[in-house]
């Protein structure tokens, strides 16, 4: 099978990357519907958020793993952020720069592998780096007033762990599962799938 290795994005790359970001936006919205009770608990005790922080970072890793082109991780996380702003998320405009920073983390990881490796280790590194960039953003921008040892450092570490496990490993598992359904047949991820 001949997959061109050019870095130019095809229309399908652009639209599917956008759709992945949008679908995650809708999933986050549904999460709010289904778990409104826990949502409240998270809001009343923000540190608990870090446990599932990685979920918000999944679009970056999944986008990068599916599209496999420079800019994919950054683009997905940014579009997801613009969508949450349009939907009237509680952080509105500030999610956009935050999304860009988070997307950059994963983008750096894929770039470090020169957009050649999209196996589990790359996904884990992408998850960890997007977690790191998210943690740095929060560390300086939102958490400045909290105690360093008791709060800021544990919060940052937990964010990175959550991102590595949920966005990194979880994103990789999710991408494999998506490829198995056949919807990604026009993408190189599906190359590993046996012909039927």
């Amino acid at each position: 099978m001949n997959h061109s290795d050019t870095n130019r994005w095809r229309t399908i790359d652009i639209v599917v990357a956008s759709v992945i970001a949008v679908a995650f936006g809708v999933i986050f919205w549904a999460w709010g519907l289904v778990w409104s009770a826990t949502e409240g608990a998270f809001a009343f005790f923000p540190p608990a958020q870090t446990l599932i922080y990685g979920v918000w970072l999944m679009p970056a890793v999944v986008g990068g793993l599916v599209i496999r082109k420079p800019g994919a991780a950054l683009y997905c996380e940014t579009v997801a952020a613009v969508l949450s702003a349009l939907l009237g998320s509680q952080w509105a405009g500030t999610v956009i720069p935050q999304g860009i920073v988070q997307g950059l983390g994963a983008e750096l990881a894929f770039a470090a592998f020169r957009y050649r490796s999209f196996r589990l280790p790359s996904a884990v590194v992408a998850g960890a780096l997007t977690g790191l960039s998210a943690a740095l953003f929060d560390f300086f921008v939102w958490n400045a007033e909290y105690d360093l040892a008791d709060y800021r450092v544990p919060y940052a570490l937990l964010t990175i762990v959550s991102a590595t496990v949920i966005a990194g490993v979880g994103g990789w598992v999710l991408t494999r599962a998506l490829a198995n359904t056949g919807v990604l047949d026009r993408f190189p991820v599906a190359r590993d799938r046996a012909a039927i």
Partner: peptide, 11 residues
């Protein structure tokens, strides 16, 4: 299931 359907639509 939502993701799968969304990607199909996107394609």
């Amino acid at each position: 299931a939502l993701l799968v359907g969304a990607i199909r639509r996107g394609t």
